[in-house]
Design a binder for these strands. Structure first.
Lengths: 232, 232
DNA sequence: AATCCTATTAATCTTTCATTAACCTTTTTG
DNA sequence: CAAAAAGGTTAATGAAAGATTAATAGGATT
């Protein structure tokens, strides 16, 4: 049996939203429907979606802005934009090569399913490729991977080697849980009681370093691991 | 595998900045996104960019003014301006000291990639002269690669062979980390404990030589390497 | 061969940083 | 709800890395 993919549909129009979620449900997708951007953000935090379908015109926020925030929560999520405007299409068409696509309204449901599957299949094939970003952004902080520098609004913050390694791992997976095992095996090479104690110390240090931006927090998930949370 | 070019995109508009950096990332560019001119200046100091894409209208500074400042930091950097205004070519003529191009908004991303590649290819043909830069400038010091001379405001400072090699490497990568491995393999050919000890001695010598300009410092990044930092 | 120059090695001192310990707070479990 | 486990924070410690100066050795030059 195929994996049942979980989608979030962000659409303020009730009729269209209902119609699409029903239709996609019939097509064996697990659909969560959010009517506002705010709702979408909350839902993204508490669900592991495989794909997001966003109306670009929402009552409370621009769809692109929303996509950015969602990406902050779940960086791997592919997007499918629903747009009535033809204006932005020239901006979006370039994305048809990557994990972003768009559809013009009115929506053709069959076409929608084709696009969804295209995005999902692309995701699974490119899962292996490692991303080597040279900078990670977290709120007003920037972590530069080339010179091992952390900056808060251009102010340099000195990090030790292990502090940097840990923050880099958390930043790479921001808003996603890093398990104890994952952290300890990548940074300490060994997953034992004493290294776990050491990890706690470093988490504490990093919290101090990141204290200047209230939107950032390193949260503990009891018995599982840590997560760098970046709030919108 | 092709070299991954590193670009800085200076764009205050969140939606456009996000879309472009995502798109260029997909096109296998390493993109660093700055939202303000000030941010751009800091990032230019701490990254070795191959190209800069500047919005001409920024909240804190005019894009052309910014380009001049960036040019002061990285003189070889080619520019690509994004402009809403229909600019006449003669305005850009003043900038044709280096590789410069411009694109009108709204941006056609495919066109953007074509222009970027055009600028970069122009760069690579003249890469020969970049590698053989005859002088490096660090604060009030000048390192002449042709006659192996270091000068502080015209005052000649005598360097030994290894001192020169090391300073040249650091100067070429100023404000960027040079790892122990990088230094030892390029200057000593072998990366072992004793050469590392020797490196420390030379760093100490160079610090004395560079002491006359307080803005210069050779900083150590524990267990990673050294960096020639040039302030302001 | 004596002198000069320079890179390496040695010796010594200082700094840095990961670990450990100690103690406190929060969460989980029985 | 009490005991136990896990997590949080700060400080002490010691080993490793780095900085600096001096000594040595080896090659080149005269």
């Amino acid at each position: 049996m195929d994996k049942k993919y979980k989608l979030i549909l962000v659409e303020d129009d009730s009729s269209l939203g209902y119609l699409l979620s029903e239709y996609l449900g019939m097509k064996n997708f697990n659909v969560v429907w959010a009517k506002t951007a705010e709702e979408a953000i909350v839902k993204t935090k508490s669900n592991a979606f495989d794909l997001a379908i966003l109306d670009v015109m929402l009552p409370d926020m621009d769809g692109f802005e929303l996509s950015q925030k969602i990406k902050g929560i779940n960086p791997e999520l592919p997007f499918l934009f629903l747009t009535a405007r033809s204006l932005k299409i020239d901006v979006l068409k370039g994305f048809s090569l990557g994990a972003v696509d768009y559809l013009k309204k009115p929506i053709d449901e069959e076409e929608l399913v084709v696009r969804i599957n295209a995005l999902l299949s692309r995701l699974s094939t490119s899962e292996e490729e490692e991303e080597h970003a040279s900078e990670y952004y977290m709120g007003d902080y920037t972590l530069n991977m080339d010179n091992f520098e952390l900056r808060y609004k251009n102010e340099l913050i000195k990090l030790t080697g292990k502090e940097f390694d840990l923050l880099a791992l958390l930043a790479k997976n921001q808003n996603q849980l890093c398990t104890h095992k994952e952290i300890l095996t990548t940074i300490w090479d060994k997953n034992d009681y004493f290294n776990k104690k050491s990890l706690n110390v470093f988490v504490s240090h990093l919290r101090k370093h990141l204290a200047k931006d209230k939107r950032l927090s390193i949260v503990n998930v009891n018995r599982r691991g840590f997560m760098l949370r970046v709030e919108e």
